[in-house]
Deep mutational scan, measured.
Amino acid sequence: KTEWPELVGKSVEEAKKVILQDKPEAQIIVLPVGTIVTMEYRIDRVRLFVDKLDNIAQVPRVG
């Protein structure tokens, strides 16, 4: 699995749990929505963009 659209609106902790069940090797990085990030693709990275309430604001994707 490479993306988790069902996690939008969920808490960071809930999202981490689901992603690590699907992809145990994932390196999860939590960032505020709108953060500028590098464009290199990494198969072991999932970025979680969160709103001010620490809920997932964008679809988490591998990369």
Results as ranks from 00 to 15, higher is better:
Val62Ser: 11
Val30Arg: 03
Val46Cys: 07
Ile36Lys: 14
Glu3Trp: 05
Thr38Ser: 14
Thr38Cys: 08
Met39Lys: 12
Ala15Met: 02
Lys17Leu: 08
Glu13Val: 12
Thr38Ala: 14
Leu7Met: 05
Ile29Phe: 08
Val50Met: 03
Glu3Leu: 04
Gly9His: 02
Val62Cys: 10
Ile36Pro: 14
Glu14Trp: 10
Leu53Arg: 13
Asp54Trp: 09
Trp4Glu: 00
Arg45Glu: 15
Leu53Cys: 14
Leu31Pro: 03
Ala57Pro: 03
Glu6Thr: 05
Gln58Cys: 10
Gln21Arg: 13
Pro60Thr: 00
Val37Ala: 14
Gln27Gly: 07
Asp51Ile: 00
Pro60Met: 00
Val30Met: 05
Leu7Gly: 01
Gln58Asp: 11
Pro5Ile: 00
Leu7Ser: 01
Leu31Gly: 06
Lys1His: 04
Val46Tyr: 02
Gly34Ile: 00
Val12Arg: 06
Gly9Ala: 02
Gly63Trp: 11
Gly63Pro: 10
Glu14Gly: 04
Thr38Trp: 05
Glu13Ser: 12
Glu40Trp: 02
Val8Pro: 03
Val33Leu: 11
Leu20Gly: 09
Glu13Gly: 10
Thr38Phe: 06
Lys10Glu: 08
Lys52Thr: 11
Ile36Met: 14
Glu40Ala: 06
Asp51Ala: 00
Gly9Tyr: 01
Arg45Asn: 15
Val8His: 03
Thr38Glu: 14
Arg45Trp: 13
Leu53Asp: 14
Lys1Gln: 12
Lys23Thr: 07
Ser11Pro: 14
Glu3Ile: 08
Gln58Arg: 13
Val46Phe: 05
Phe49Trp: 12
Val37Leu: 09
Lys17Glu: 09
Glu25Asn: 15
Ile56Lys: 00
Asp44Glu: 11
Met39Asn: 15
Val18Glu: 06
Ile28His: 00
Arg42Trp: 10
Glu25Val: 04
Glu6Asn: 05
Val62Gly: 06
Ile19Trp: 00
Glu14Gln: 11
Tyr41Arg: 12
Thr35Gln: 12
Asp51Met: 00
Val46His: 01
Arg45Ala: 15
Leu20His: 14
Ile28Thr: 06
Asp51His: 01
Glu13Arg: 10
Leu20Cys: 07
Leu31Val: 14
